[in-house]
């Protein structure tokens, strides 16, 4: 399934400066694994946590839905879906 992945500013240097890339996969986890394989430095930022979930400071949306309210990395993606990755706004 071809999906468009929109990248935040901080990840663009790892993808030759592009603001979006195409990817494939049946689930969000497949899509993120594909990105990590093609752009290895990105893996430090978006690889699943030790608990096998999204990293704490990474938000991902499929179309307009926050995947933390769907099935997280198991969220299914379909042809034409738009996956948006946003760093969390966080601090202390």
């Amino acid at each position: 399934m071809a999906v468009e992945v929109r990248l935040p500013t901080v990840l663009r240097p790892f993808a030759d400066g592009r603001s979006s890339v195409d990817s494939d996969g049946a689930t969000l986890g497949d899509v993120l694994a594909d990105l990590c394989e093609r752009f290895p430095p990105m893996a430090d930022q978006i690889s699943p946590s030790d608990a096998g979930d999204l990293p704490r400071f990474v938000n991902v949306y499929v179309n307009d839905e926050d995947v933390r309210y769907l099935d997280s990395l198991a969220t299914k993606v379909d042809d034409g879906d738009v996956v948006s990755i946003l760093p969390a706004v966080a601090g202390g």
């Binding site: 949306y61 307009d64 926050d66 933390r68 946003l86 969390a88 706004v89 966080a90 202390g92």
Partner: peptide, 20 residues
């Protein structure tokens, strides 16, 4: 989202809605 006196994390849905 942290609901903490020493840290914060903008709730991810709120972040999306604001940006949109």
């Amino acid at each position: 989202a942290d609901a903490s006196p020493v840290s914060y994390r903008v709730e991810s849905r709120d972040q999306w809605h604001a940006m949109r």
